[in-house]
Design a binder for these strands. Sequence first.
DNA 1: GGCTTGACTTACA
DNA 2: CTGTAAGCCAAGC
Length: 107
Amino acid sequence: MKSKIEGKLFNNILDIVKQIPKGKVATYGQIATIAGTQNPRLVGFALATLKEDTEIPWFRVINSKGKISFPEQSDGFKIQYSLLQNEGILFDAKNRINLKQYGWKSF
DNA sequence: GGCTTGACTTACA
DNA sequence: CTGTAAGCCAAGC
């Protein structure tokens, strides 16, 4: 057992992402701020280190532009796209999510 | 133990 | 609208 947690902010980020309600999405900056860090990259990094069997809804995390962070040709994009639609979230003509409607509000 | 990269954001020109 | 620069934390080598 490790007496030290592997990055307190890191653990915080994952915990916050798990708290995103269904049908809502949150931006990296939003999560980073709530987690207590000024580095949104850690949010992406935290999600990048997740396992396949993770229970964390990483697909509900998008960038400030309201778009998926993956290239449209990437499989990750397709997967996240499908999962979000499955949650009831739709995209506009520019493949962007309407944060005004689906944006997650802080607790 | 030090440097580079990374699913990013915000500000300015 | 696009492009460049700085900020900041953790993992990998």
